[in-house]
Amino acid sequence: MKTAVSPRKAPRQARSQATVTAILDAAARVLVERGYAAANTNLVAERAGVSVGSLYQYFPNKDALITALHDRHSRQMDEVMDRAFALSQDLPFDEALQLIIEGVVEAHRVEAGLHRVLETQLAGLDMLSSHEETEARIAEQMGCLLARYPDQVRVPNLRLAVYMLMHALHALVHAVVATRPSGVSLKTATQEIVRMTRLYLSSPPTGG
């Protein structure tokens, strides 16, 4: 039988919303400290200062709770990226590119410890549809961004360029946020990502 991963009910009153927020905040702390396998609803309820019965009013099981946490985290990251794409609309190519990459870095700094756990430990949990939808939306925004600068973007296949950027930026940003070398600031590392990306996009193809 498939485990339910949807919330049991949505909070409507301010007090209920505060309870759900406390539960999700506690779940994030427990997940970062203990990992997915060791996290459980009893511990989350204790950290949130509510009874486990109160937790179950909103979340039928651990996976429903973690899925709600994942969705909240995705929305927070989406807000950062949506703001970056909106601000880039009328900027010159170099400024727009820098703003978008800084946005990607900022988005990955939103509860970075939680993000690492969600990325590394929960790949098999039934929450991937929302993740895929988010990626598809960002890819579409990235494609629209590149299409605005035909004189600067020399990669002939924009669909391929978006694919390369999505995967390259995902790996690089994760690295600079979490494991950059000692003595290298986040600002410096981000500027290097901007430089690498600009060189890729502005270099004409060589050969077939």
Rank of each mutant, 00 (worst) to 15 (best):
S51L: 03
L97F: 03
Q121N: 08
A171G: 10
S54W: 06
A139P: 01
A171T: 11
I138N: 05
G124T: 11
E133D: 14
I138D: 05
H108T: 08
E102G: 07
H131A: 11
T120H: 13
S182D: 12
L165I: 09
A178H: 14
H174S: 07
A84D: 00
M127I: 11
A68Y: 06
L160H: 11
V176N: 05
S51E: 05
G143S: 08
E46P: 04
E106G: 04
R116T: 08
I138G: 02
D63A: 09
R72H: 07
Y58T: 01
E135S: 15
V153D: 12
V117I: 14
R137Q: 10
R109P: 07
V105T: 02
T120I: 09
S185P: 03
P150D: 07
T67Y: 03
V110T: 02
L55P: 00
H70C: 10
P156H: 10
L146K: 05
Q141D: 15
A112T: 08
S182P: 15
H70E: 10
Q98I: 04
S88F: 00
A161Q: 05
H167D: 15
A112K: 15
H131R: 15
S185N: 08
A168R: 04
L97A: 10
Y163D: 13
M142N: 00
N157H: 11
S130E: 12
G124M: 10
M77T: 09
Y149C: 12
S130G: 07
Q152G: 11
A139D: 14
A86N: 13
A64S: 01
M81K: 04
A48M: 00
L145W: 04
M142T: 10
E79W: 01
R83W: 10
A96D: 00
L165F: 02
A45V: 01
E102A: 10
A112P: 14
E111M: 05
M77N: 06
E140C: 03
M81Y: 01
A86R: 15
H170N: 14
Q76E: 07
D90R: 06
E132V: 13
Y163T: 13
L128K: 14
H174K: 09
A48D: 01
V177G: 05
Q121S: 06
G53D: 09
S74R: 12
Q76T: 06
A178T: 11
R148D: 01
D71I: 11
H70Y: 12
H115P: 01
H131V: 15
H73P: 04
P150V: 06
V105M: 06
F85I: 11
V110M: 03
L114H: 05
V50R: 07
Q141W: 13
G103F: 00
A96P: 00
E119D: 12
S54D: 11
E132N: 13
R75Y: 13
C144A: 15
A136V: 04
Q57I: 07
